Amino acid sequence: MAKLRAEQLAAAASKSLAPIYIISGDEPLLVQEACDTLRQSARQQGYTERERYHADKSFDWGQLHASAASLSLFAEKKIIELHITGGKPGTEGGKALQEYAARPADDNLLLIVLPKIDRNTQKAKWFSALEQAGVFIQIWPINGAQLHQWLDQRLSAAGLSADRSAIDMLATRIEGNLLAAAQEIEKLKLLATDGRVDSQLLANVVANSARYDIFGLVDKALLGDVQAAVRNLQGLKGEGTEPLAILWALTRDIRSLLQVAAGTASGSNFDWACKQAGVWDSKKSIVSAALRRLKPNELEVLLRKCNGIDRAVKGMRPADPWDELLDLVLQLAGVRSLTASNTRMSLSI
């Protein structure tokens, strides 16, 4: 069996089609898109009819033979699509697939869709039989190191360009769910009228156009407007905003404050330090107000607290993320809501 990567499928299938294709993987979006690529190439080469079957435990494998043998009144060629949701066809199914692979029909294309399969499954007789006649496309997951590049390429394919902070926020938002990423990018196509995506636009999408604004929350906290910041946080919670989206914005600005503080401490003037930290001109007065109230060692503690909240959101630490976000916002606004001993305990868990 020829093995192809998903990105090689379009070029290979446009030249010639094998009688059997197996697409296997646990990334629903990538599996779906690989199937779509194959279907499109097949339609262009005369496979205008499609029959789809789900092979569960009650599936009658005689349908596979019947479908292969039946002639269509409306098309000369057809795609027989077989989804084996459990990953293994069983004894009867394995026999049927071996028989089909021995004599694949000239006017049929058999597409078999499987979840991720292990090496033992690939050594099974039915898989070995298919191996002699078809093409195997194994879909690999997109890991953390590859996700940012994948998102950048996906945005570019959609006609969008995004800065690094926007891609970071999108990666945080989707948590590895590529279907969710595709949906968010479709929203951005409608909202980014000039084709550019920045973190503010993305935050609005993440918040589902919430009446309460994530960046407004951060600005109010930096200004020390405690009541407005807490009201904004509660509003975002009530509207279903995800804690990670809020945490991302808070963490980003705490890091910017630390960078500006370090720059001025080393002799740079305030404007240059803000430029180096990526602080917009419109936000310089807010940053200045925050730095008059918050010392670098306090900001370091808040940054560590952000890490603790991130672990709480992801279930790696026994704490309520919303309670800890409230505490973070209060401390950023200048309210000492926890004693020193309690603060150390929350950071060490």
Rank of each mutant, 00 (worst) to 15 (best):
E7A: 04
A13R: 01
S14T: 13
P19S: 05
P19A: 04
I20R: 01
L30T: 04
V31G: 02
Q32H: 09
E33G: 02
C35G: 09
S41G: 06
A42Y: 03
R43S: 10
Q44M: 15
Y47E: 01
T48R: 11
R50T: 14
H65W: 13
H65N: 12
S70I: 03
L71G: 11
L71A: 13
K77T: 11
K78I: 07
E81W: 01
E81Q: 09
L82D: 01
K88H: 06
G90R: 08
Q98E: 15
Q98N: 11
E99H: 11
P104K: 02
A105H: 13
L110P: 01
K116R: 08
W126I: 01
Q132T: 11
A133K: 13
I137A: 05
I139T: 02
I139N: 02
W140C: 11
A145K: 13
R154M: 09
L155G: 00
L155K: 01
G159V: 08
D163F: 00
A166V: 11
A166I: 09
R173K: 08
R173T: 12
E175W: 06
E184M: 12
L191Y: 15
T193Q: 11
A203Y: 01
A207K: 03
N208L: 13
A210E: 05
R211D: 13
Y212V: 08
I214K: 00
G216S: 03
V218Y: 05
D219L: 06
A221M: 05
L222W: 02
L222M: 15
L223R: 15
G224N: 06
V226L: 11
V230I: 14
R231F: 09
L233N: 04
G235K: 01
G235E: 08
E242L: 10
P243I: 03
W248C: 00
W248H: 02
I254Q: 03
R255G: 03
L258I: 07
Q259G: 07
G263S: 02
S268H: 07
N269Y: 07
D271M: 07
D271W: 09
A273M: 03
Q276E: 13
A277D: 11
V279D: 00
V279W: 00
S282M: 12
L291I: 09
L291P: 03
L294M: 12
E300C: 05
L302R: 10
L302M: 13
K305E: 15
D310Q: 14
V313P: 01
K314F: 14
D320E: 07
D320G: 04
D323F: 13
E324R: 04
E324F: 04
D327W: 12
R336A: 15
S337M: 10
S337G: 11
L338K: 14
T339P: 04
N342K: 15
L347Y: 00
S348L: 05
